[in-house]
Design a binder for these strands. Sequence first.
DNA 1: GGTGCTGCTGTAACCGGTTTCAGTGACCGA
DNA 2: TCGGTCACTGAAACCGGTTACAGCAGCACC
Lengths: 356, 356
Amino acid sequence: MGNRRLTVREIARLAGVSVATVSRVSNGTGQVSEETRRRVLRAIEEHGYRPHHLGRALAARRHGAVGLVFPGLSGPYFSELIQGFESEAVKTRTSVHILCTHLRADSDAEVIEMAHRVDGLAVLGGTVSHDTISELAAMLPIVVLAGDGPAAVPAVRIDNTAAAALLTRHLLADHGLRRLEFVGDPSGSPDVTERWEGFRQAHRQLELPLPRAPIRVGLQQPDGVFAAEQVLRRAIPPQGVVCANDETALGVLVGATGRGVRVPEDLVITGFDDIPMAALVTPPLTTVRQPVRELAARTARLLLQVTAGEPGQPETGLVLPTGLVIRGSCGCPTSTDSPTTGRHRTTSTSRRSRAM
Amino acid sequence: MGNRRLTVREIARLAGVSVATVSRVSNGTGQVSEETRRRVLRAIEEHGYRPHHLGRALAARRHGAVGLVFPGLSGPYFSELIQGFESEAVKTRTSVHILCTHLRADSDAEVIEMAHRVDGLAVLGGTVSHDTISELAAMLPIVVLAGDGPAAVPAVRIDNTAAAALLTRHLLADHGLRRLEFVGDPSGSPDVTERWEGFRQAHRQLELPLPRAPIRVGLQQPDGVFAAEQVLRRAIPPQGVVCANDETALGVLVGATGRGVRVPEDLVITGFDDIPMAALVTPPLTTVRQPVRELAARTARLLLQVTAGEPGQPETGLVLPTGLVIRGSCGCPTSTDSPTTGRHRTTSTSRRSRAM
DNA sequence: GGTGCTGCTGTAACCGGTTTCAGTGACCGA
DNA sequence: TCGGTCACTGAAACCGGTTACAGCAGCACC
């Protein structure tokens, strides 16, 4: 077996043609006579030649890769995002570089490093500072996924505030609940910031006293369990908790029922995301459905389109619709048909240019 | 702002030196006089020059990247693996390309494509055919993560069979249970194959009749809920279920308690992985702890070491230790102290050369 | 026969770095 | 003063592709 890699020049020699012809054949560009093409293809086939990615990339001045930056992989939400993104990228034979900024201090520097190795970048909202995003935007296409960047940077997102407000109003107005608490850390991610804002907005709109400070926990199931412990220790526990996502809501549910609290009779619980498990617990979770995978796929397509140098429209902002999913955990009667569905109210969908 | 990228030659011109000197300065190689170094650094600094990754990579004949191939991102297990892997790679300034083979038919071709863009490859057990792995092994360093490849290919794994057998023996011998079922699809992944094998092995060792066929479901929480429904519909339900992982076990737990079944009195449930949630449910889950992140980190280090061309030992097989974690869901009394711990029994750790 | 077109092909110059190797001047010991 | 060593520097040749451009043959047409 050939130990050293074959090069175009080797193949050219073997086929008795020039490197230009080999390149033309292997790319299907330019004019090549049928006879020559066959000879070159035979040589390529016979020796198992494949053009070296770096050589090709350097000549084309394209990396053939895009980067995806996210804080960490917690729960189905991020998994869906990554998978949605990756599956779009692979369609265009573009590789996906990942970077988990997690809790690393110098992550902005790492992102900049990555920017030099890819043709485009998608960053999850809240993972990279706006200054750094602006800096990056000057050197390559960049899209913010599930969040906001500086004004000129395109973003694909949902309207968290409106959805959280709609959900909260359902609890306040339709169920007449008064003592609600928010579970989640608004300073942890822009998603949570906006949901917290929607939660407060609903209180303001209904001219109710503003809710107390949020219970600052993370976004995973165990965090919800801790939140439940915290909430149930109070002298006067709340009537309901609005959780930043389904994961924590499930955690709260587990924690609460484990302590003998009845849901929704003693405590109402709502989530956000509508992960598959939400419909399967008892009682099933009232939540907000958002098209997570679609969000990521749209981001990928937007990015790939720009990096491919397509002349397409310079779309700068995209807001995908969400839907309120009413199930049993808010106190509504549980629908007895399919457990995977709930009643829906869909928020408006819009495509806006944030540059106005 | 400079629109076109700066090149070494530009900087060389600006600093009044040759490209060789610029290269020497920016890499810290070779001898350069202090005065010249300063002049070059000033030019680099002043114009914000950064060497182009592709040019450098082509010259070095190194991509500066490794690939990670996995089936899909379901649950904390895969998330941990990816994060463990990525955090090691980033330490060596190596980028990580991901590929979710998921259910795509031509995934082997995609893996081969990826192999041409990276210096080394880690594939999760069961995602790539052995033939393809052998083919890849001939062209670049490759490590199998959490599974087995062809004999000559290094792998980092745990002993699933022994751990599952130990757990199952606990149920059969210590609790005297007789009617156990296995939840998980052995044909879905090598992990499950081995755990199923361990489950059967325990029955054989205790000279008990072999268990009935496994309940073939996926590895996520909702799959566990479906499994619970399936199991509880039987005329004679089992006394216990051994689940392929914690996710499904939690799903079974939710599904069973939702139907009024008491755990562990009516039904014993065990998991595998010891995800954080396992200790927090009621009753807490008896399971097997495995060092997931460490598994991935070791894989990354092994791979990076080889791709860096280090003369190190040609380690071919690594088996990390697991531990049986006894909590309440198997019927043992729940320890009343910290809820995050359980009683432990650790399986042997070993480092073996599979080439023998 | 000359002209212009068309189809095919090869040479050489890129892309943006690294590295070999030869050359320079300074310095040192004899 | 001379040969030898040493620290430093630059020209040019890589790495492995793509592509602009020029050249050539064959043909149609005047």
